[in-house]
Computed example of a mutant assay.
Amino acid sequence: MKCWAKNVSPCCNTQSSEHYISKGLFSDKMLYVESAPFLGGTSKEIAKASLTRNCLCKRHNERLSIYDDEAIHYGESLKYCLELSLKRKNSNARKFSLHSRIINCDRLNRWIIKTYLGLAEFFKYESAIDKGELAKLVYSDTSIKHYLHLETTMEIQEDFQIKESVSIAPLEKNERTIGIQVELYGIRLNGIFSDKPEYIQSPIRVKFNEHKQGPSCVVKFK
């Protein structure tokens, strides 16, 4: 049995296949995967259903769907903002009503950590935080928002495209992996891990301000 959550609670006797990145983030059945270490660093088109690995037991894997759902909700929120923006592009309205979408930051934090744990063996450096402790955070019954420092890394007026693409890269310091960078649907987030509640999370807002009438939509992390 291969399960990165084996020290959190007892595993069951059934091996489960976990997607490298939540399959619900992509609507197509075939995906173009670029420079993937689990493909030997090559780039190729591959079936989404085959982008899995045995790294969790069935019992632990089934408890993660709520966090996959939150990442999908975040992606869908960004797409909603884009569609609303395009719809309003040629509007003659003097002012727009501001639409908002709420992201559960605690659930998204857990998704980021569990995604890292599924990919950790492919990164150059070992985790600065014991992976067993990170696994406990994923399954914790209490909030973990102070155990991960999450921030956007987008520059002002930086060009980006909101589309169904996801990239993952390690964040490194002193030859250790301290977190990961996730670029999901064009928006980059850095997540730095801790094994103690040391971070005070600043509220994150992704605003769509491209109209002369003012902001059109905002995605809020709470």
Rank of each mutant, 00 (worst) to 15 (best):
M1N: 12
M1A: 11
K2R: 14
A5R: 05
A5F: 11
A5W: 05
K6I: 04
S9V: 02
S9Q: 10
P10F: 03
C11T: 09
C12I: 00
T14F: 03
T14G: 05
T14M: 03
S16R: 08
E18W: 01
E18P: 04
I21V: 15
K23F: 01
L25Q: 00
D28M: 00
V33A: 10
E34D: 14
S35N: 15
S35E: 14
K48R: 15
A49L: 09
C55L: 12
C57V: 05
C57L: 07
K58W: 10
E62Y: 05
R63P: 00
L64T: 14
S65N: 11
D68Y: 10
D69W: 03
I72A: 14
Y74V: 02
Y74T: 09
G75W: 05
G75K: 01
E76P: 02
E76Q: 15
S77V: 01
K79I: 11
C81S: 09
C81G: 15
L82D: 06
L82G: 02
L82A: 04
L86R: 13
R88D: 04
R88Y: 10
K89G: 02
N92K: 15
R94Y: 09
S97K: 15
L98E: 01
H99Y: 12
S100D: 11
S100N: 13
R101V: 04
R101K: 13
R107S: 15
I112D: 00
I113T: 03
K114I: 02
A120M: 07
F122D: 11
F122C: 03
Y125E: 02
E126P: 04
E126R: 09
S127N: 06
I129G: 00
D130C: 10
E133D: 11
E133T: 12
L134W: 05
L134P: 04
A135L: 06
T142M: 10
I144L: 07
H146E: 14
E151I: 02
M154E: 04
Q157V: 05
E158I: 03
E158T: 06
D159T: 11
F160L: 13
I162F: 02
S165T: 12
V166T: 11
V166D: 01
I168R: 09
I168V: 15
L171V: 10
E172L: 01
K173Y: 12
E175K: 15
R176D: 03
T177N: 12
G179I: 08
G179L: 11
Q181I: 09
V182G: 10
L184H: 08
Y185I: 00
R188N: 09
L189P: 00
N190W: 07
G191P: 06
F193M: 10
S194H: 08
P197Q: 05
Y199F: 15
P203N: 10
P203D: 09
E210T: 14
K212I: 10
K212L: 14
G214P: 09
V219L: 09
V219N: 06
K222Q: 11
